[in-house]
């Protein structure tokens, strides 16, 4: 006899969540996420006559403008390059920290984990303002560097270095948080076995640890990449208007130039590229990591 509770067959439909509950967030997502996105893609193909006015004729001119002007190409390449470079640095810097935390137990682990998450409690604007004061010509970091290298003109605010610092600062906590779990799942005896059987630190890392945590690192990297290419405040506040990326351009087109169609076209192009890169890296990652998939 099957167990029944209030007339419901538990063995057949065993779930804490009634399927209908999903409808509410689904409706929310469709109305406030999917629909605007579709509308945005839609208006990118029409002439824009101003906010609140009907759309003009069908046109591909916005896309044409993007693909024919090297200025815009350069912005896209810059955005992707900044995102990629900051992601790589986040992985390189974050992995050892995640490793150390996941190999710890007890109070110190919680303390360190809290320290990693702590920056996220503070508003992004405030954090970036903090960086501005550190990086500005009279700021702490700039002054220290100036005294270390007296002859050289050191500009951090409004430079790629400044933006990179900001992007790493933003991405690192997320990468560390994501990485702690996968490393924790690798039993320490695998590492010990590797050492005992004659592999040094580097070999153990590349032959054992990396293959076993590859997937986690990949999803962490993809998250950081998505966040950092889509970063708005970092290039805005640390770039001093000198370094323009896709998000700034879209903002500029939409709010100052009131060219919503072109802004939409930029957004669509940016989105497609970002999705292409992340899905591509996921796929190549799967292929390379296929042997660890079997684990």
């Amino acid at each position: 006899m099957k167990a029944k509770t209030k007339g419901r067959d538990l063995s057949k439909d065993w779930s804490y969540v009634n399927g209908w509950y999903l409808v509410i967030p689904l409706i929310f997502l469709v109305i406030f996420f999917v629909a605007p996105l579709c509308y945005m893609a839609y208006i990118s193909f029409f002439e824009f006559n101003g906010v609140g006015k009907p759309l003009g004729d069908f046109t591909l001119s916005h896309y044409k403008e993007f693909f024919t002007k090297s200025t815009f190409w350069l912005i896209l390449v810059r955005t992707v390059a900044l995102g990629a470079a900051s992601t790589i640095l986040c992985v390189v810097l974050g992995y050892p920290i995640s490793y150390k935390i996941s190999r710890m137990r007890g109070r110190w682990r919680s303390v360190l984990m809290a320290l990693v998450v702590l920056p996220l409690w503070v508003s992004m604007t405030i954090r970036m303002f903090g960086w501005m004061s550190i990086l500005s010509t009279n700021g702490l970091l700039a002054k220290t560097l100036q005294s270390l290298f007296p002859g050289r003109d050191i500009k951090l605010l409004g430079s790629y270095t400044g933006i990179m610092l900001g992007l790493i600062h933003c991405g690192l906590p997320y990468f560390i948080m994501i990485m702690v779990g996968p490393i924790d799942n690798v039993d320490i005896s695998y590492e010990e076995a590797s050492y005992v059987f004659g592999a040094g630190f580097m070999r153990t890392f590349f032959k054992v640890m990396l293959p076993l945590t590859y997937k986690g690192a990949l999803s962490g990297a993809i998250l950081v990449f998505s966040l950092n290419t889509a970063a708005f405040l970092v290039p805005m506040m640390l770039g001093s208007g000198k370094i323009i990326v896709m998000t700034n351009t879209i903002y500029q087109q939409a709010t100052y130039l009131y060219n919503w169609s072109f802004a939409s076209a930029l957004a669509v192009i940016f989105m497609v590229f970002a999705l292409l890169i992340t899905s591509l890296s996921r796929k190549t990652g799967r292929k390379t990591g296929s042997r660890s998939d079997l684990a």
């Binding site: 005896s189 695998y190 010990e192 076995a193 590797s194 005992v196 004659g198 684990a295």
Partner: peptide
Amino acid sequence: YKRDVAMVFQNYALFP
């Protein structure tokens, strides 16, 4: 890794 030992672990510790 320079001791030239070998070990058999309780949980086998075979690389998965």
